[in-house]
């Protein structure tokens, strides 16, 4: 079977600062994610895992090397040019959930669909379905402040999934949750990966995550140290 490459970084380097104070966040990294993979980028704080996630998600630009998403060469595209690529192909789950505080769970989830120009009825049914699937039917019309951390993160996952992206990127999704809720969230992502063949790349150093995922990429000082 030919595995389809969903995202690829080739010889990618990323630096912060200039001159003597320049820090190498990523150093000539080569990395590929295939369709249906569930990969954890693991490493200590400052190891470069979040930077790698940002480059995979097209929300930051590398200083050297090439990047591809779903076969599209994104190397020379600006972040604004990449906006439609992100909207179409990538779903993000953030450490602090990053929900729009003035919108309800339903509205937060429908937000990316509204910008995709999908008709009203499709949006409604798709949002309803995904919220039901993630067990949020009771919280549909609640604002983020009215929900627990775990529920907010579920809404964030629903928002990431609702556009049917080819890649879900989760940056420390359990960091702001207690261990039980964190485990629930990881289990949910695993379940989605297994049931729907959704590709997930997750950056974390949380044991709750590391204990549950097989494919772990260890990053150290901006380089991929090991695969498991």
């Amino acid at each position: 079977m030919i595995e389809k490459v969903v995202a690829k970084l080739a010889g990618v380097s990323k630096y912060y600062g200039t001159g003597e104070g320049r820090i190498t966040a990523l150093d000539r990294v080569d990395f590929e994610v295939n369709k249906g993979d569930f990969v954890v980028l693991a490493g200590l704080s400052g190891s470069g895992k979040s930077t790698m996630l940002h480059l995979l998600g097209c929300i930051d630009k590398q200083d050297e090397g090439e990047s591809y998403i779903d076969g599209i060469d994104t190397t020379r595209m600006s972040l604004e040019q990449l906006a439609p690529v992100r909207l179409e192909k990538i779903g993000f789950v953030f450490q602090s959930f990053n929900l729009v505080p003035v919108l309800t769970a339903f509205e937060n989830v429908e937000l990316p669909l509204l910008f995709k120009g999908i008709d009203k009825n499709t949006i409604k049914s798709r949002v309803n379905d995904i919220l039901h699937e993630l067990g949020l039917q009771e919280r549909m019309h609640h604002f983020p402040r009215e929900m627990s951390g775990g529920q907010q993160q579920r809404v964030a996952i629903a928002r990431a999934l609702v556009t049917n992206p080819i890649l879900i990127l989760a940056d420390e999704p359990t960091a702001n949750l207690d261990s039980k809720t964190g485990a629930d969230i990881v289990n949910l992502l695993i379940e989605l990966n297994q049931k729907k063949n959704i590709t997930v790349v997750l950056a974390s150093h949380d044991s709750v995550v590391l204990d549950r995922i097989k494919h772990i990429v260890n990053i150290r000082d901006g380089k991929i140290n090991s695969h498991s």
Binding site: G57, I59, E80, A83, R86, F92, S96, N98, V100, F115
Partner: peptide
């Protein structure tokens, strides 16, 4: 700022 960053990350253009 965080909200704007999130919307941008989601692929919503600066114009919107």
């Amino acid at each position: 700022v965080r909200e704007i960053g999130t919307l941008k990350a989601m692929g919503i253009s600066n114009r919107w």
